[in-house]
Simulated scan of single mutants.
Amino acid sequence: MCLGVLLLSPAESWLEDRHPVEAVTQAEVGVSFQERFPDPNLAHAVYLELYPEKTLFPERVNLEAPVSAEQLATIITLADTPDRPITDLTGIQQLSHLKTLHAEGNEGGRIQQLAPLASMKSLEHLTLRNEFIQDLTPLAKLTQLQSLDLSFNRITSVQALQELTQLQTLRLTGNQVTDFRPLEALPAVQAKDTNRFEALAQTIQAEETKTTGETSQLVVYTPEGEQITANVASSQGEVQAGNTVRWLQPGDQMVQYRDSETQIVAFLQQNVVGEKLVTKQVRSVLSANVQPISILNAKGELIKQDSCVMMAGDSDAAKDVNEASIKAALQKVSELVPDINQHRGTIR
């Protein structure tokens, strides 16, 4: 008869002594990690939270092992890892005393639905960055939240956050929100501190438009209800009444909206087709290098100082402006009331 001897390394022997509870639960008939958590990455994160030393021996992680509700209730903090991003939160509500959850999506997977979080009222710190989240309704009752980071998602409305009056920090950069009025009463917003509230790079893609008189508009409201003014490169377009933008150049264009504290920055992106236009807004850019056109009579006397201008230089913009201005001035001369003193006049 041949007798075998199993030798354990000091580290492995220590592990066996460290968690006798696991040996007991292995023999119990119960629900396994993989049954409780359909997403294997979530199951893996929960397993390592209960048995952190298994990170030294990943081959010993056993998601088929049973786990009790009592064990899950001991977990206070949970985080995924870049190589195992959580993609499905189903079952996470079993962590009834969870206070901190950190998940960050990548090419390996991203979270889309927050419904499993709806009953987790013990949560105080929640980070869900770079995911595919759109609907924040499940967070509406999580009134113990103190910090919330939802940067780089697909959020268009923050209405669900208006009752989270314990929020001390809120980050919403990289979404598609244009109305921040529901956030006015939150401590994070009232602090007027970019370290506590930040909503940069809200990017909205508008439908294609033309340079032939069509205007574009994006209304962005601060938490206080003020409308943020549009800013656009003057060579590309002009801001008109009602915060609308008329495009002067074809191509992929962008309007920027920035509040005075630089806590909110939004962009309207739009593809513009049509011909390049020249307007008063373009001419005003180089106002120091322009001269108004004067209309004189035959005696050289000034009849009218016209609003049309001539721009100095040989640039394409100057040539376009000057050509349009001369045509406009000549048209106005032809419309003057006939007068002997104005015959055979000129413009300069």
Rank of each mutant, 00 (worst) to 15 (best):
A69H: 06
E198D: 09
N243Y: 11
V321Y: 00
A45W: 07
L336H: 04
I76M: 05
E59Q: 11
D149W: 02
A233I: 13
K192T: 12
S234W: 05
G174Y: 00
I347W: 12
L48S: 01
A318K: 11
Y51P: 02
I303S: 06
A233P: 13
L330G: 03
V265Q: 09
D17Y: 04
P10K: 09
R60N: 12
P52Y: 09
F267Y: 15
V177M: 02
Q71W: 12
Q202N: 09
Q291T: 15
S9F: 07
I340F: 05
S13A: 09
Q270R: 15
L95T: 02
V219S: 08
A230N: 06
E64L: 15
Q240G: 08
K276H: 13
L8R: 10
Q134L: 14
L150H: 02
P38Y: 09
A140G: 06
G300H: 07
T178C: 08
I155P: 01
D306T: 14
T222Y: 01
H97P: 03
A103G: 04
K304A: 08
Y47A: 10
M311V: 12
I92L: 05
L98P: 04
V278F: 15
P82Y: 00
R110G: 00
V272Y: 01
A329W: 13
E12N: 08
I347A: 01
Q112A: 15
Q26F: 01
F180R: 00
T165Q: 13
E261C: 03
L277T: 14
G225E: 07
N153M: 11
L50D: 00
V232R: 10
Q112T: 15
E22F: 07
L114F: 13
D316S: 09
T215D: 08
M120P: 07
E198F: 08
V245L: 07
I92Q: 02
M254Y: 11
F197G: 00
N341L: 09
F267I: 10
P82E: 03
L186I: 12
A43D: 11
R129F: 04
D252A: 15
G242M: 05
S122D: 02
L8D: 08
Q144A: 10
L56N: 10
A288P: 12
A206S: 14
S334P: 04
N231L: 12
L296K: 12
L117N: 01
K192R: 13
E224I: 03
A312E: 12
E49T: 09
E104H: 04
R154A: 14
L336I: 07
E207T: 14
E104A: 04
L126P: 00
A206M: 13
D193W: 01
P116N: 09
A79P: 02
S13P: 03
R283N: 14
Q190H: 13
V245T: 13
A328D: 14
A233W: 04
E208T: 15
N153K: 08
D179P: 00
L164I: 05
P40D: 10
G242N: 11
C308E: 15
V29I: 14
A103I: 10
A79Q: 05
L142Y: 01
I303G: 06
